[in-house]
């Protein structure tokens, strides 16, 4: 059963249609990515999911309950907003304690959860320090940890790695994967395709407020990514090129000296077949399609245009 169900969601700001008939469903324990350039409608969609905006049309169901503009419906949500939404004047612990209380925690449970979230953010040693003394990456980690305090079933992460250092990014990724393993439902928006490819089970490609396609990354690349280019430097030249092309599911297979070049729509299958051919290669270069290519092929633009 889906934990998040979005049906025909629409939002208009004056003449601008920000979200236009968006529908998707996310199951328990799934990381679902909303991928699109700035202004595609990702944040508007998230805002409607967490009740900050009332949709002009369509419905949002969270863990079986509709209309997240009601505070009780939002109790299942943990949100890490795009901007760092914490109080610079408070300590790391003070911030988490405050948001924990707002989420309904108190007493020993509050203390335990604050300590756990400080650990998750890697900030237990700095818990007594004011936020104003933290680096951007540390703030970003705490921003995410603030969403985990009440152990919500659904987590909405709106570009949680924007502007962070590689160390913090890796810590955030590890945290998100651990949350998925715990069975949490995660909606993740980003315009970094590498993040989506690393984290998401499924991705929706969003542009101009519309979902262009939803599927696993492999399937999306297979459908819209175009061909992958393979280049292998062989120690022994094969005799029957047409038979090899058929076996590798290759297109435009050619040989130039000892170098074999071909395109394939199924790079994993082609490489497996190449290994089975007992053709020894000294070097192998694979230029596979990615989500960037998917987006380019779907919209005619690059993700960061």
């Amino acid at each position: 059963m889906a934990t998040i169900v979005v049906e025909q969601l629409c939002k208009r700001f004056g003449e601008v249609v920000a979200v236009d008939g968006v529908s998707f469903a996310i199951g328990r324990g799934e990381i679902f990515g909303l991928l699109g350039p700035n202004g595609a409608g990702k944040t508007t969609t998230i805002n409607m999911l967490c009740g900050l905006l009332r949709p002009d049309g369509g419905t949002v169901t969270l863990d079986g309950r509709t209309d997240p503009t009601h505070p009780a419906v939002r109790a299942v949500l943990g949100v890490a907003p795009q901007s760092i939404a914490l109080y610079d004047e408070l300590t790391a612990q003070g911030n988490l304690e405050f948001f924990g209380r707002i989420a309904g925690l108190a007493g020993r449970r509050l203390k335990e959860r604050v300590a756990a979230c400080l650990d998750i953010a890697g900030l237990a040693q700095r818990r007594k320090d004011r936020l104003s003394t933290f680096s951007g990456g540390m703030k970003r980690r705490l921003n995410l940890a603030g969403a985990l305090l009440h152990e919500p079933a659904i987590l909405l992460f709106d570009e949680p790695t924007a502007g962070v250092d590689p160390q913090s990014r890796n810590l955030i990724f590890d945290t998100i994967l651990r949350l998925k393993a715990e069975g949490r439902t995660i909606l993740y928006t980003t315009h970094y395709m590498e993040e989506a490819q690393r984290l998401c089970d499924r991705v929706a490609i969003l542009d101009h407020g519309k979902i262009l396609d939803i599927d696993t990354i492999e399937n999306l690349i297979g459908r819209h990514g175009g061909v992958s280019h393979v280049e292998a430097e062989l120690s022994q030249v094969p005799d029957d090129l047409p038979a090899l092309a058929a076996r590798l599911a290759a297109e435009g297979l050619g040989l130039e000296g000892n170098t074999l070049r071909f395109q394939t729509r199924e790079p994993a299958r082609s490489l497996a077949a190449l290994n089975q051919c007992e053709l020894h290669y000294r070097a192998l270069k694979v230029d596979t399609a990615n989500l960037e290519d998917v987006f380019l092929n779907l919209t005619g633009r690059r993700l960061r245009d």
Partner: peptide, 11 residues
């Protein structure tokens, strides 16, 4: 600073 939005998405 965005903290108001964070409060608004809470219960």
């Amino acid at each position: 600073t965005g903290t108001y939005q964070r409060l608004c998405v809470g219960p």
